[in-house]
Amino acid sequence: MPKYLKGNYRLPKKVTTKDNKSQPTIEQKFEQESLRKLGGSIAFVMKSKTFVWKGDEGEKTD
């Protein structure tokens, strides 16, 4: 079938296809949406090896 659909003329403008490598696939998108519904017990962030933050006056302990 594709051989019958082959163009027999030239397009005036060159058509370029977008690079899809950086675009998530539908499956990846689905997974990312799903992850939004699976939170943990408590928020977690780590900043510059500070395990305990003692407030603005500033002591930080490791």
């Binding site: 017990s41 962030v45 395990f51 305990v52 933050w53 407030g55």
Partner: peptide, 23 residues
């Protein structure tokens, strides 16, 4: 609260490990 803020790791078990280490 004036209580210090401790890293959690997202769950109670990791919070316990941080407590043992940092406190």
């Amino acid at each position: 609260t004036k209580a210090p803020c401790m890293v959690t790791g997202g769950n109670c078990g990791t919070s316990a490990w941080v407590f043992a280490h940092a406190i």
